[in-house]
Amino acid sequence: MSELHEVRTAERIERVEHELAAHGTERIFSFFDEESNRTVYVKQAEPVHNAAWLRFSRWATITLGLGILQPGADPDGEKALRLEAGRLRRLQDRGISVPEVYAAGYNWIALYDAGENAAVCIRKDVCSYEEKRRLIVAAAENLASLHSMGLHHGRPHLKDMLWDGETISLLDFEDGYLIDVAREKRIMRDLLLFLQSIYKEAAEAGKDCGPELAQLAFSTYAAKETYYASYAKKYFGDLSVLYLLLGILRCAGSDLESVYQTLKLFRQA
């Protein structure tokens, strides 16, 4: 069995390397795998052009005692992508819905198709409002399942989730490089970023469903993971100075506005 697995793995790597030669530096592309009758998406590592800024931002937030708000991206994009395949396989073994790994290399990863980008479903009219609600419930439940194991994602934005009409799959765990942040705060940070992404995607698409969908997400999450929901509500609800500051700066962009709305949800929940 192990020899057969090794042969199959080698064949898949060879197939992806053939596709890489054809696609060059294209960062994300797909091909059809005849053996499984499924589409496979390949993602290549990209250079982190703002590595110095990431390091400075991380140092600044930690120095100011706001490490929970530090950027989660790893300055070494290739290393982060190499860790992704093993992480996805381990999570799948533990029952977390993630894309199935087709193969992985030094600076690329290939995953079986797991559906449409969740952010696209929220932004556009390809999904009915009822389907958007089902998507949000599935996302909140899957994230709560991850957190109930004491694990965090790092950046669970809607754009880092896939929706196949029934199931949400989490991906892009490589964006979870945090320093000097306790496990509980990493998980609370996940919840903050998840809710914030709902507000942001809806607002940038000109939709007015953000507040209702975010409230649905939080109530669904809280029903399954009461401890971290309560912890996040108290922690973020007590950030009064930051809340007031964002209330002044919120007009500067969708990121600040969506964080403000998320803190407001925690304060009112």
Rank of each mutant, 00 (worst) to 15 (best):
S2I: 14
S2N: 15
V7M: 13
R8P: 00
T9S: 14
I13P: 02
R15I: 12
E19I: 12
A21S: 13
A21K: 14
A22N: 11
A22T: 09
I28T: 10
F31H: 03
E34N: 04
S36T: 11
T39M: 08
H49I: 11
N50I: 10
N50F: 13
A51P: 05
A52E: 15
L54W: 04
R55T: 08
R58H: 03
Q70G: 00
P71H: 07
G72W: 00
A80C: 05
L83P: 01
L83V: 00
E84Q: 08
G86Y: 07
D93R: 14
D93C: 06
P99L: 12
V101S: 11
A104Y: 02
A104W: 01
A104K: 01
N107W: 04
W108F: 15
I109G: 02
A110H: 08
A119E: 05
Y129K: 06
E131H: 10
R134C: 04
I136M: 06
V137S: 06
E141L: 14
S145P: 00
H147D: 07
H147P: 06
M149C: 09
D164S: 06
T167M: 05
E174F: 02
E184K: 09
K185N: 12
R186W: 03
L193M: 07
L195W: 03
I198A: 04
Y199H: 13
Y199M: 12
E204R: 13
A205R: 04
A205H: 05
G206M: 08
G206R: 08
A217G: 09
F218I: 05
S219N: 07
T220W: 03
K224N: 06
E225Q: 15
T226R: 14
A229D: 10
K233G: 14
K233A: 15
L239S: 09
L242S: 08
L245F: 14
L246F: 14
S254D: 11
D255I: 09
E257D: 12
S258W: 02
Y260D: 03
L265A: 06
L265K: 04
R267F: 03
